[in-house]
Nucleic acid binder design. Structure first.
Lengths: 214, 214
DNA sequence: CCTACCGATCGGTAGG
DNA sequence: CCTACCGATCGGTAGG
């Protein structure tokens, strides 16, 4: 549980591998960072219950008992990754420009969300599926962060209605669900090479104007 | 593996509980049926790797060794449930009336999909998430069924474009993805009491006409 | 970071 | 459907 506090800005869970010869001066990853990254990768691939501490140790090239010098228990890793996912999505909204129209903000929010899914696919998968294996103090915190995120998306919708960019009679609850459906379903079809901004902009007119012929 | 063939029409996975005093003459559930239903329930709740054969035995009130008189291995159950999910979604499309306009068929397809999610929530969750723990002969069959389902939805879109009900310049690939996003994301917000047809009809104008103000 | 080890539980089998 | 049992692995600890 305690290790959750160790997440610094940027969460350090972006990638578990060093870049190739084109990138220069990338600092070495500490074992603690590699542990987080490998845990995200394995939890995403095999699931939390399908990944053993021994699997993690093998991935790091150390003995499994050594894992416990970094964490107190396996669930620490799940809590850390799930909350890092929440941080990633929140941060993506935080850095949105605020001198633009509400509808434009909403468009950029879709871009931002799909971008996080694409750039942190492992973390996003844990954020979507594995969080439910969290036990209660961490689980409650996670659920609160997720609800807060949904509220922030809803607020963007409300603002765009107030400004007249979206229909005044819009079914906000379901419009938010529609937005989140598209945004979260991205994990199924996005691969590391996907251009998230391009995809978001391709979905945007579908959402805005619909699929109908009129 | 072999037990997959035992799925009859309707799959028998609808519910693990007998009805209350209002329903009459409901035939007793065999242990084999209860095993499937409990497995779907537990796999949906705790995940495939988070559910032990002992958990299943406890849920049925028998010893875990007795489970093996019904299945050859734990994965049989996963294959059976995942493929029962595929059957459920396909069947829902099969029974759609074919003397109606393409766009109306598409609307009913959304109803049908959300209805399956609602009525077989446990099976739908396994169909969405747990299938990936399937090993290869069963996994390939599952993936083929899933692709076939997506193709059927795509065909409905193509037909509705041909008939002029949907825009001729529609981005079909992403429109299908939008449809499936909404349909599949339903598992997160639907509860046993949800009116699936009502929900589908509430999402429909959002999809058709969009959320924009024009 | 290691070796050595713990009790509990895992999926599964033998043989009724 | 049961009792009895299997080797392997689980998360985790002791003690360097």
């Amino acid at each position: 549980m305690g290790s959750v506090d160790r997440i610094a800005g940027g969460s350090g869970l972006e990638s578990s591998e060093q870049r190739g010869p084109t990138a220069t001066m990338v600092p070495p990853m500490t074992t603690r960072h590699r542990l987080s990254a490998e845990a995200a990768r394995l939890f995403a691939e095999r699931g939390y219950h399908g990944t053993s501490i021994g699997d993690l140790a093998d991935a790091l090239g150390i003995r499994k008992a050594s894992i416990y010098s970094h964490i107190e228990g396996k669930e620490d890793l799940l809590a850390e990754i799930a909350l890092a996912g929440a941080s990633g999505f929140h941060l993506a909204l935080d850095v949105l420009p605020d001198d633009i129209e509400p509808l434009e903000r909403l468009r950029l929010a879709l871009r931002a969300h799909l971008n996080v899914v694409d750039r942190q696919l492992d973390v996003a998968k844990v954020w979507l599926h594995e969080w439910r294996y969290l036990a209660d103090p961490a689980r409650e915190r996670f659920v609160a962060e997720r609800r807060r995120y949904e509220r922030r998306i809803r607020d963007l919708f409300e603002a765009a209605i107030s400004s007249g960019d979206l229909r005044a009679d819009l079914d906000v609850k379901r419009a938010v669900l529609l937005f989140l459906s598209v945004a979260n379903w991205g994990y199924t079809w996005m691969t590391p090479g996907t251009d998230a901004a391009r995809e978001a902009d391709a979905f945007w007119p579908l959402l805005l104007d619909g699929i109908g012929s009129r």
